[in-house]
């Protein structure tokens, strides 16, 4: 299980990295944390001709607040995000979900930008970003643009990134008062990819739910929102009956894929359970 040969480029700045990406086109791949890319290379499932190692590009790993948004550099490591007070304060859903992501050595290397570019449907972060209405900052040598998280993920292991583009930052609207967040997940072992994961953001005002966002992981497409279920919740008191009904709705709304550890039916059952738990927890935290 040795990787195939490749050419190695180590840009010292973002423009250099983007130039390299433009030069090598479809045969070039960005090497960020490498925690998904390198296993796939060792298994010879992917064979990039050129690896563009952005790990020494300065300024790409920042975590900061900019206006009404939490801005996370593409190279911010999972470990840094897990331990970040800014993330805990401004994006509690991400902080909650990070409890489930990988293990120490994987989190030391893995990056948020790499994670979402890989777009594994079983990964937590696409669902978190979708639920948070985050935007993805993307750049190529020629242009930069932002893509809403919901539109960024186009399918399993597929994103809206065009050839020559890379993720540079992730922007998440700051959590607001009255908002509660919770992530619930079932995985074969803690730290493994989710069989099913449900992230919930609810805003409660005057005892009523004014906004609900549900992102699910482990389904056919990464970063999936359950908009029909969300609509059902708005206006309810998020009482037990409303949550149970929403959980049942979530079970119907998801489009699960059968994976190694869980078939589609089981995933639906998991979603119902996890959604109910996450909704109850988010509601309680919103108070």
């Amino acid at each position: 299980m040795k990787p195939p040969p490749f050419e190695y480029v180590r840009p010292g700045s973002l423009p250099e990295a983007l130039d390299a990406l433009a030069r090598h086109g479809a045969t070039g791949r960005i090497l960020a944390g490498g925690q998904s890319l390198v296993p796939m290379m060792n298994l010879r499932l992917v064979k990039p001709a050129v690896l563009i190692d952005i790990n020494r590009v300065p300024g790409l790993a920042e975590i900061r607040v900019d206006g009404g948004e939490l801005v996370i550099g593409a190279l911010a490591r999972h470990a840094a995000l897990l331990g970040s007070a800014l993330v805990r304060k401004h994006c509690p859903l991400m902080a909650d979900a990070y409890r489930w992501v990988g293990h120490g050595p994987i989190r030391n290397r893995g990056t948020l930008g790499g994670n979402i570019s890989h777009a594994d449907p079983a990964s937590e972060m696409p669902a978190v970003l979708a639920a948070c209405d985050a935007t993805i900052g993307v750049r190529s040598a020629k242009q930069s643009r932002t893509i809403p998280a919901a539109g960024f993920f186009t399918g399993a292991l597929a994103t809206a990134l065009a050839e020559g583009e890379m993720v540079t930052e992730i922007r998440v609207p700051l959590a607001q008062p009255g908002q509660g967040a919770a992530w619930e997940e079932a995985a074969n072992r803690k730290g493994d990819f989710a069989m099913a994961g449900v992230g919930v953001l609810v805003t409660v005002a005057g005892g009523k739910c004014t906004h609900a966002a549900i992102g699910v992981a482990g389904m056919a497409k990464p970063g999936t929102r359950l908009s029909a279920t969300e609509k059902r919740l708005v206006g309810t008191a998020l009482d037990a009956a409303a949550i149970a009904a929403a959980a049942r709705a979530a079970r119907e709304e998801v489009r699960p894929s059968t994976s190694y550890h869980a078939d589609a039916t089981y995933k639906r059952e998991l979603v119902e359970t996890l959604a109910a738990r996450a909704l109850a927890a988010a509601r309680d935290r919103a108070r």
Partner: peptide, 22 residues
Amino acid sequence: RRAHPRRDGAGHRHRALREVPL
């Protein structure tokens, strides 16, 4: 869970260590 379509072994060749308890 009995969710394994263990057809010919091809599907789980990379996954076996994922079954190992941590």
